[in-house]
Design a protein around this nucleic acid. Sequence first.
DNA 1: CGATCGATTGAGCCCTCTCAAGAGAGGTGG
DNA 2: CCACCTCTCTTGAGAGGGCTCAATCGATCG
Lengths: 240, 240
Amino acid sequence: MAKVDPSLVAHLPLFAGFSTEELGDLLREARSVRFAKNSAIFEEGEDAHTFFVLLHGHVRASKTTPSGEQVVVRYVSPGETFGVAMAIGLPNYPATATAVDDSVVLAWPASTWPRLVAKFPALATNTLQTIGSRLQETHTRVVEMSTQQVEQRVAHALLRLAKQSGRKVEHGVEIDFPISRQDIAQMTGTTLHTVSRILSGWESRGLIEGGRQRIVLREPHNLSVLAEAIQGEDVPPDRP
Amino acid sequence: MAKVDPSLVAHLPLFAGFSTEELGDLLREARSVRFAKNSAIFEEGEDAHTFFVLLHGHVRASKTTPSGEQVVVRYVSPGETFGVAMAIGLPNYPATATAVDDSVVLAWPASTWPRLVAKFPALATNTLQTIGSRLQETHTRVVEMSTQQVEQRVAHALLRLAKQSGRKVEHGVEIDFPISRQDIAQMTGTTLHTVSRILSGWESRGLIEGGRQRIVLREPHNLSVLAEAIQGEDVPPDRP
DNA sequence: CGATCGATTGAGCCCTCTCAAGAGAGGTGG
DNA sequence: CCACCTCTCTTGAGAGGGCTCAATCGATCG
């Protein structure tokens, strides 16, 4: 359990409107914990004993259906809050959280939530904003799944991941954590086979560059064009 | 602007933990407004000037894509809060709200929200719970759209509507507001043609009874069975 | 009683899934 | 350090669920 420097986290949305002193109070109750790549932080259904802020790394939240299929709910980036089941009245975690990279989190016992909220009302309003944005994002996803074809959905998913966790590299923007075709399929409601075919197609057109659990967007702009393509509209053919 | 009897709304989730007096304070700032069937309460993109509690009737929230397709976000039942864009930090409504039946709402100016939340912290925590549940429901929808076939999704949608707004009638449970095949298509990410075919099929099997903007579930249990059907699993054939 | 809006139904196609096989990359243990 | 083994990715062939296009019917409302 390491000490956390308040000035490093003061700018996070969860702590908006907090004085240095208040922030100190809050951080004093948190532990800092490290999770190795591919380890589970919590499991769906487990009782929600802790809530978290991600400091370092990346976390995947996913749900499993009764028949065993997995769906990726979202990827958590550094600075984001997760595991706040308690705050929204759930006694159990609604999804499984897995570190996709070596990750460091701040962890508070869920039992402290009521007291902390009573003491710091800004905690509730800040969390409300966060959950609200997440609701918007999820609605966007529903709209996309309802109205777009798989290729457009995959394009949107990649662009979103790049915006959220992109790292500039020589030939474009690389998604900054290991992500498989299967993961993308589970984000977009399709199969890994279809994703593989689509990415292969894009790679041969020079739009992206792929690898094992690795994707680089070489032409984000052209990918956006593809993502916005209207049903039945022609796409300009490749250059020979 | 009618007077609202506090005792009639005291049990609503938004007001949980309020004293009679506090509730009176809150209600004093609200107006009660009636909207005729098929009238718009607010439009997507409009600035979020008001937030609401539905007292009577039913409201459909829907989003429109750039290319003009509509997606139904949810149906609001009496007692529920809606239009809380302001609370989650949105300056504009993210969806259009339409009264699908003659409806009565309580309306607060959005500008009062910050003051009300400061005075009544329970307002924030109650809204947090509400938005949290909605996030869960939306995630469920994403999971369904990712893993289930259209027939199962439609079955789930009808069962949910019946549970939420069902009225017992002679031959089963009727969905208590006008809903078209098109509406159901927009809830489940399919076309009205496919919904029509599915409902026709069910009607001939005696599972439901249809009509113009009207659906009665005659055998909710068998519909649940259908809704949970596993990929590729056989369904018992009809009786001759 | 006519007009408009919702529902039904057929025909044909295509996007995407399923089934199947195999190749390449990385990690691991002897 | 190399061989093996596992996990990821690729690609083909075929099928089918659901969509598109099109026409008609029926019911509710003014």
